[in-house]
Nucleic acid binder design. Structure first.
Lengths: 216, 216
DNA sequence: TAGATTGTTAATCGATTAACAATC
DNA sequence: TAGATTGTTAATCGATTAACAATC
């Protein structure tokens, strides 16, 4: 069990893209697919695909490949899209609202069961069927609902404080949308949704691209 | 010039975190900082930090380190935060609105100069001082404003189509928030803001974390 | 059987870390 | 000068790619 799963971000991105590719395929019920085909379609090395699939799936059959339906299920399972975790959201501002309205979130394995804010006007209102509660009650409610995942969508200045409050409520994983380095004990995992870095990389690549291909 | 800059995502994430760390420091005007200190504060290997800084900055002085003010400026320059690019946004739904209201975006080097949607009710309205225009006019306006960056924040089904329209308007870099593999010519760069993958990784880490440290 | 596809083993590449000499 | 910090060169580690044997 749990025999040393690689943690490379790239692996996960690729698996996710294979999954998207297959799901968008016209689906015959007993269709098969091979790493070679996926690789060609996505412009990735085919050995890469085979290795990746070997990590996430039971493996296919020589000359036949993988049964598409099963492979999709395997990837969804590996990526955790098939069993939902509960999560709480802190910060019902713009980003918070976006996440609350993003109904696909459940497809990707988490369900927001409660949202918190400190703004009196927001407390008591609801987005979809998630009520926005007073952040004062957060730690307590996290404990009671036995939630492990907290989403931080508050302004940067409050992020650290909110994060600590989540942790005091027993949260073990923080999905952070604030542009801040959160400091947490080693028992807690943080994943930064880091728009600034994404942008920096995008623009670097753009610059290289233009240097390489010129304009037009 | 442009002497082979490494493109590793991790490098950029780290540089960004060093920058955040320094900016949050109480600032004396002529204070210095060393890679050792940064490394210790962020829990990173100190040689790593030194190498990273060497890539983005002119370098510090032995025994003294870097002048904080200058180092901040160098990192901001390297990450492109000091000169803004214009961008257009497609899709004025939840995510689009969040991006439009996210005034920090300019701090991170891009400015949204126009937004587009296909929804008649939205066309003509504005968010902040960005007007939402008919997506029909998009390619044309992109050309006229000579914009290189397009942000895709439309539902997955329309993403590919919208992306092609952007490209026909001369866009060379696409920041994609739709959970889709966009296919683009090699002259165009795509950066996926890939929440699903982030979530998958977060949950894997959470699982490992709990396996390692147990509950409580 | 022949051939496509698989999984595996070895080679390459790049990024991280360790060791060390240079310098203010 | 002594010592902290720098940059550099070599060693390690991990991820990607290439070569190949196994199999339906």
């Amino acid at each position: 069990m749990s025999s040393k799963i690689p943690m490379s971000i790239m692996l996960y991105k690729r698996l996710n893209s294979y999954l998207h590719y297959m799901k968008q395929l016209p689906l015959g019920d007993s269709d098969n697919i091979s790493s070679t085909v996926i690789a060609a379609a996505l412009g990735v090395n085919n050995v890469q695909v085979r290795k990746d699939l070997a990590i996430a799936s039971d493996g296919g059959k020589p000359r036949v490949g993988h049964m598409t339906k099963d492979l999709i299920a395997d990837l969804e399972h590996f990526l955790g899209y098939d069993n939902c975790s509960n999560a709480v959201l802190v910060g019902a501002g713009n980003m918070g609202n976006t996440l609350l309205s993003y109904d696909n979130l459940e497809q990707y394995g988490i369900k927001i069961v409660a949202a918190f804010d400190c703004e009196p006007d927001l407390i008591g209102t609801a987005v979809g069927n998630v009520k926005i509660l007073d952040v004062e009650r957060m730690a307590d409610i996290c404990r009671r609902l036995d939630v492990n995942i907290g989403i931080v969508a508050v302004p940067p200045l409050h992020a650290q404080e909110v994060c600590e409050e989540l942790i005091s409520g027993g949260i073990r994983a923080v999905w952070n949308f604030a542009p801040v380095n959160l400091s947490v004990p080693e028992t807690v995992t943080v994943k930064n949704e880091d728009m600034a870095t994404s942008l920096a990389i995008l623009r670097k690549q753009l610059a290289e691209n233009i240097e390489h291909f010129g304009f037009v």
